[in-house]
């Protein structure tokens, strides 16, 4: 085990990318893997994983959504892992929620046992596998101190609004490890992304909309509402002096990019803020090229800004 890891047990974890990271969020997948490799961390993808149901399946029936995540957790257990890392807020949220519901809701438990039995795999029992976010993964495995030592290309001079969205911290009861004081994540004012990017040299602005909603669940079905929400996120980031909104969720990221186009029409001018995944920023700070972390796959074109700041 490498000595420089803060928590050596996280050197190798199960990886659940989820559907979005194979589609529109591919840059997040690419940059997460690249950062892991650069930091000497190993990701082993879950075999034959399925969709977590996102924000949609629960509206058909929440127990099916619980089953979908339970199946993924049972795969992690089968593969011998006690930790699964999910970079997508939706996947992360749903795995956490399944964990909670299977421990506390008889109905979910019963449906999960029934569906698992019919599908022919082991019924997942809560408590066997811990779900972590990519933020937890880097923060806990490496930590800010070690990370700052490995920075080759500081993000100095880059002003960042850290945007966490809804699913990372709400509702509180499915995240029992949060709000536990010093060192733990806060659900009302999350800071893990701020901590990591600060360690990489960035200047974080005090962004009041860290956990505001981008309208991601209705990004297509109620576009006008989503555009209004994104317009607010963008102009507030500008008012805070941010060059970049750093994201940690493919739905937020794509929503911000897509509705930036629509919001600028409403606003009648261009907005100056660019949108990048936090893993893309960390990757470039660790010395990876813009291409290696998929910057050219983003709709929000940040190449000129990155060049100006001497990054990528």
């Amino acid at each position: 085990m490498p000595k420089d890891l803060k928590d050596p047990s996280l050197k190798k974890v199960a990886y659940y990318p989820g559907c979005a990271l194979e589609g529109t969020g591919h840059a997040y997948n690419k940059s997460t893997k690249a950062v892991g490799k650069e930091l000497g961390l190993d990701l082993v993808e879950l075999k034959n994983w399925n969709c977590c149901g996102a924000m949609e399946v629960k509206n058909i029936d929440p127990n099916i959504q619980t089953y979908l995540s339970a199946r993924n957790l049972s795969i992690a257990e089968d593969m011998g892992f006690d930790t699964v890392m999910a970079p997508c807020n939706g996947c992360y949220h749903n795995l956490k929620k399944a964990e909670y519901d299977l421990a506390n809701d008889e109905g979910s438990k019963e449906v999960n046992a029934r569906l698992s039995g019919k599908a022919g795999h082991a019924t997942y029992a809560p408590g066997k596998v811990e779900t972590i976010h990519s933020l937890d993964w880097i923060k806990r495995a490496i930590g800010e101190e070690e990370l700052s030592k490995r920075v080759k290309n500081s993000l100095k001079g880059l002003k960042i609004a850290n945007y966490y969205g809804c699913m990372y911290s709400r509702p509180r009861h499915i995240f029992p490890e949060k709000d536990k004081g010093e060192g733990s994540e806060s659900t009302s004012k999350p800071h893990f992304m701020d901590d990591l990017l600060a360690a990489a040299g960035a200047e974080n602005v005090d962004y009041p909309l860290k956990t505001a909603c981008c309208g991601g669940a209705h990004t297509l079905s109620d576009s006008d509402t989503s555009t209004k929400l994104v317009l607010n996120l963008l102009t507030t980031a500008e008012a805070c002096g941010a060059d970049v909104i750093a994201t940690e969720c493919p739905t937020c990221h794509t929503g911000l990019e897509m509705h930036q186009i629509r919001a600028e029409k409403v606003l009648g001018r261009k907005t100056n803020v660019k949108i990048l995944y936090f893993t893309q920023l960390l990757g470039m700070a660790l010395g990876l090229s813009a291409g290696k972390v998929g910057v050219n796959e983003n709709f929000s074109d940040s190449r000129a800004l990155l060049k100006e700041k001497g990054l990528g």
Partner: peptide, 20 residues
């Protein structure tokens, strides 16, 4: 529109296990 979206999305998940 939200229900139409949810239904289309969920059908894909139920049929293939994944969405595109």
């Amino acid at each position: 529109p939200s229900t139409i979206f949810d239904d289309g999305f969920s059908q894909q998940v139920f049929d293939t296990g994944k969405i595109e």
